[in-house]
Amino acid sequence: MKARDIAMLTLDVIAGVAVLIALYMALVWVPDAANLISPDEKVAQHIFYLHMGMNVDAGLGFLVTLIGSVLYLLTRRRIWDMIAVSSAELGVVFATAVLATGSLWARPTWNTWWTWDPRLTTAAIVWLIYIAYLMLRGALEGAEQRARFSAVYGIFAFLSVPLTFMSIRWWRTIHPTVFSGSNPGAQGGFSLGPHIRLTLFVSMIAFALMYAALMAHRVRLEQDAQAVQELKEQLL
């Protein structure tokens, strides 16, 4: 076994254990939120820990795509492009999970699967943008050009997000803002007791670790794909 395999395996185990701990805390250990009344709402509130964890992963995924894109254009090293595409792919999968879990939480809490709330709408658009990013990659031939173009698009994709969010926010919002500020229109929000705070913290760390572990594997996949390409070129 190479040192890298050992490091990756260690990261896998740590991330796996952390996720299991986070799941135990979210499902069993943490008490129901005190201010929620209906039993459905109380149970569904536990989705929140998973939702936030996946949200951290999606956010990390898209942020790292931006970083990889910028660094690729500056350094022209293939590894940054590999990091960017790997991260975008993970980001899209986790963003799908965020939308799905959010929807399943909204149904018992807001009594609707979907509302055109700024955060929901922005999340959906971000999801679409990164699907477009992956489609762009699929439609380009030539590794160098693909890396260049998708890096440019990766920069635009990330920078348009705050503007999109701002533009959609100037409609009334009902998404609960848990962390800061008071939003009188928000429904289904809950106060953060020490238990909830800790569980949330642990699950966000655990999911960030899971992201790191998956990234390590996904980047290796990309490197192996390049190795295949190089071997084929040697044969020709």
């Binding site: 459905d40 149970v43 569904a44 536990h46 989705i47 998973l50 939702h51 996946m54 999970a97 799905a100 879990t101 399943l104 939480w105 149904r107 018992p108």
Partner: peptide
Amino acid sequence: TYLAGAFAVA
């Protein structure tokens, strides 16, 4: 149901 559904999907 929703909790199970959300975990299953994710």
